[in-house]
Computed example of a mutant assay.
Amino acid sequence: MSALRIDRVVTSGQFCLDGGCWDVDNNIWLVGDGAEVLVIDAAHDAAPIAAAVGNRKVTGVLCTHAHNDHITVAPELARRFGATILLHPDDDVLWRKTHPGVEYKPLHDGQRIPVAGTSLEVMHTPGHSPGSVCLYQPAKAALFSGDTLFQGGPGATGRSYSDFPTIIASISERLLTLPGEVQVHTGHGEGTSIGAEAPHLQEWIDRGH
């Protein structure tokens, strides 16, 4: 078995909700080894993601949440590689806005997603959306946070199906209890660490009021 590795692909497109659209760059994370890989957040364009996968087996196409910019090409990649789409069912209403009629396998809190001889733990972290999840890989000290936690603060909560007190609870109770050295691989932009973000929780709370 070859060593576990984390690859990032960046694609560009639009996030659309509540009647508006915004240009965004998204991080797609590939977690695996030389033989198999899990795709996290299949955004905008399948071609560069497929190129990064190469000839590896795709064990799943996992969605940290169901905003359109994180799931754009999930069905396309799942068909191409014969893989299963994985999503927390609390985001079903958002999923149906983009992919009505396309089925997925439901995720649940505490579930372990196997890949490359290890696994990623599903952490249900609602707030940015009802079904938002983060994925924790202790051996690599890695957290894939979707749009729940960024460098400098929590994900946005100003649109439908989001809630600021809920995301603050998810971050403080679930994420900031992880070891400080854990590297946070975010859904947009550059990453951070739990240790870098933990001291700022009260600032975020004050800013949100």
Rank of each mutant, 00 (worst) to 15 (best):
S2N: 02
R5A: 12
I6A: 03
V9A: 09
T11I: 11
T11W: 10
T11H: 05
S12H: 12
Q14Y: 12
F15M: 07
C16F: 05
L17C: 04
G20Q: 03
N26I: 00
N26Y: 07
N26L: 03
N27F: 06
I28F: 02
I28A: 02
L30E: 09
D33Q: 01
E36L: 02
E36Q: 12
V37R: 04
V37Y: 02
L38S: 07
V39L: 07
V39T: 15
D41W: 12
A42C: 13
H44Q: 06
D45G: 06
D45S: 12
A46R: 07
A47C: 02
A47F: 12
I49T: 04
I49D: 15
A51K: 01
N55V: 13
K57Q: 14
K57E: 10
C63D: 13
C63E: 15
H65I: 00
A66Q: 10
H67Q: 07
D69I: 04
D69F: 08
H70T: 08
I71V: 02
V73L: 05
A74V: 14
P75G: 08
L77G: 10
L77N: 11
L77D: 15
L77W: 15
A78P: 01
A78L: 05
F81A: 05
F81Q: 08
A83N: 04
A83T: 00
T84S: 09
T84A: 09
T84R: 09
L86T: 14
H88W: 11
D92Y: 09
L94Q: 10
K97I: 04
P100T: 00
K105Q: 13
D109F: 10
G110D: 04
G110M: 03
Q111S: 06
I113A: 13
I113Y: 14
G117N: 11
S119P: 01
L120K: 12
E121L: 11
M123A: 06
G127H: 07
H128E: 13
H128A: 10
S129N: 12
C134Q: 10
L135V: 13
Q137T: 00
K140W: 00
A141E: 09
A142H: 01
A142T: 08
L143Q: 09
F144T: 06
D147L: 10
D147R: 07
D147N: 12
L149Q: 02
L149K: 01
Q151K: 14
P154N: 04
S160E: 04
Y161H: 09
F164I: 02
P165E: 03
I168V: 02
A169V: 07
S170K: 02
S170T: 01
I171S: 11
S172F: 10
R174E: 07
G180W: 13
V182A: 10
H185S: 06
T186D: 15
G187I: 08
H188P: 01
I194T: 06
A196M: 09
E197T: 04
H200V: 00
H200E: 05
H200W: 11
Q202V: 00
E203D: 02
I205Y: 11
R207H: 13
G208F: 14
